[in-house]
């Protein structure tokens, strides 16, 4: 097949698209097939550092915590039983706020790129812990 031909490029681009769809499909299936473990950890990263790791299954009532970054921006994160969201933020686009609640089956981490803040939700089993000493 000639690299200069349209056919070649149609196949390449269609293959990338197909791979994306498969990736999305596999990821959706994987996220939904995870057993409900005793631990569901929300990890908050700000400027590349973990600033909070909260076991969402141990949260009994909603509470908020504000994270302020190097640039002076801040995001207020609301932790709730089994889920977490960015409640409000100083970023111009407000995408992180409109991403809404993230829980065990949410496909994408919450990301506020202007403020370098990420909120990920992962099953505690992923972290290989047998127990927590506290």
């Amino acid at each position: 097949m000639n690299i200069k031909s349209n056919k070649f490029w149609v196949i390449v681009i269609a293959a990338v698209l197909a791979l994306c769809l498969v990736a999305v499909g596999i990821w959706t299936w994987w996220r939904n097939s995870q057993p409900e473990e005793e631990g569901l950890i929300a990890v908050v990263r700000l400027d590349g550092r973990i600033v909070a790791a909260v076991d969402l299954n141990k949260v009994t009532e909603n509470y908020t915590q504000t994270f302020s970054g190097e640039s002076g921006n801040s995001n207020t994160v609301e932790f709730a039983p089994g889920q977490v969201r960015v409640h409000d933020a100083t970023c111009p686009d407000q995408i992180c706020v409109s991403q809404g609640w993230a829980d065990r089956t949410t496909l994408l981490p919450i990301a506020c790129l202007p403020n370098s803040l990420i909120v990920e939700v992962a099953a505690a089993q992923d972290l290989g812990l047998d127990s927590i000493s506290r």
Partner: peptide
Amino acid sequence: TKTPSLILYLP
């Protein structure tokens, strides 16, 4: 952000 799982956004 030092968050490798952001690669999930790619597809």
